[in-house]
Nucleic acid binder design. Structure first.
Lengths: 222, 222
DNA sequence: CGAACGCTTGAACATGATCAACTCCGGTGG
DNA sequence: CCACCGGAGTTGATCATGTTCAAGCGTTCG
């Protein structure tokens, strides 16, 4: 579902018209695409790569409120000032539109508008799940949640029920995402490792889920 | 904006057709409108009253993910199982639709679909702000945020810069909303009171903001 | 080689949760 | 009319979880 871009929702000739509005934009890892507080002039589709969307306090605390991958829609509509900062995690390809043009175009392509509505609802749903996490779950649960989510989305099954997962972000970004600190993330991961629930080599992004039943049990306590 | 219902977006004769799909539904305070896990068969507009939308863990921890007031849209679209519980906080009037009918109707009334998209985006934006709160702000900041929000929405100005606010929910619901406990809410409020920032009489829902500058300073730290 | 970075680990600390008592109030029933 | 009860709110003491501060390790990159 993530891989179906909004553009795929409209017929080819119309796509051509829309594409005329958009321009290809390459962003390298670490670059900021949108600063919170700037004028909200553009939106985009993610062609390839990964980005983080984050909100921050005035004194610099950061909470990642979402991650974007290929096919996802980037940007806020109907508001004049961006409230979020979008940063590329990897080298990224975007198809960017002036926001005003895009909003106008939406009205002409009902199928696209519907698809965007569905996606926005899905994002809202994710946000609601994460509010539950951030508000009510402890560090262990948040990390387990995160790993299972990852496994569900990208997990490759290995031998005896093992699931191999590539953690796509750094510890710092995990912390930003889960509302914790780097140290807490690290401690929880090593605890899961010494409990033989997961395995990974020091500093590696590669992670193997040895016992997903235990993870499920952490996520779904009695 | 909150008071403009979706129904107001379409012309009168069409409204009549849509209304034929909907039925008036009175809910008394405390009643549950939708249980998480049930079939997602209905959605509704809020005619009057107030409701809470909450997510819960299997073991009963609850996080309120949103509040609904007159004019707001109630329900999740495009999914077959409700993931959230909706509970009336006060006696409430709804205009309820079978979800399938409503989704079909959306396609016929582009103005309504657009309005719903705008609202969903606005809800998403609120959710993002709250993720920042839940993930990164301490109790004092969350309470200050909440009071200022309330003041902005419903505040009546009094004499010397005072703002009178009626807190529409119990301490328990504030706690559920802010991701804290009842005791923490109480302590933060009495602390603000002894700091002469707000005033209220024991147990009263009426609250006066004496010094909104201090609240702003708490919300927007150096 | 040295510096920088990502990650881990340890120790001390702080914040908010938990447990428990108590007040205030409104309703209910003797 | 008053005694009783239950719910909402407050307050205090203790405790646990996660943060903060600090150090150290292993890699990579200049």
């Amino acid at each position: 579902m993530r891989n179906k871009t909004l553009c795929a929702s409209i017929s080819d000739e119309r796509l051509a018209i829309l594409s005329a509005l958009g321009r290809r934009w390459r962003v390298s890892a670490g670059q900021v695409v949108t600063w919170a507080g700037d004028a909200n002039s553009h939106c985009a589709n993610v062609i390839s790569g990964a980005l983080k969307v984050s909100a921050s306090t005035a004194d610099g605390r950061e909470q990642i409120v979402g991650l974007l991958f290929a096919g996802d829609f980037l940007g806020q509509l109907f508001v004049n000032e961006a409230s979020l900062t979008v940063t590329a995690l990897t080298d990224t390809d975007l198809c960017a539109f002036p926001r005003a043009d895009f909003e106008r175009a939406l009205a002409s392509y009902p199928r696209m508008e519907r698809l965007l509505l569905e996606r926005t609802m899905a994002s809202l749903h994710e946000a609601q799940e994460r509010m539950l996490s951030l508000g009510r779950k402890d560090a262990r649960e948040r990390v387990a949640d995160f790993l299972l989510d990852l496994a569900r989305r990208t997990g490759m099954c290995g031998a005896a029920g093992e699931i191999r997962v590539l953690i796509p972000i750094s510890r710092g970004e995990m912390a930003g995402f889960l509302g914790l600190t780097i140290e807490t993330i690290s401690r929880q991961l090593t605890r899961l490792k010494s409990d033989r629930v997961i395995d990974f080599s020091r500093g590696e992004r590669e992670c193997v889920i040895l016992n997903s039943a235990v993870l499920e049990a952490i996520v779904n306590p009695a």
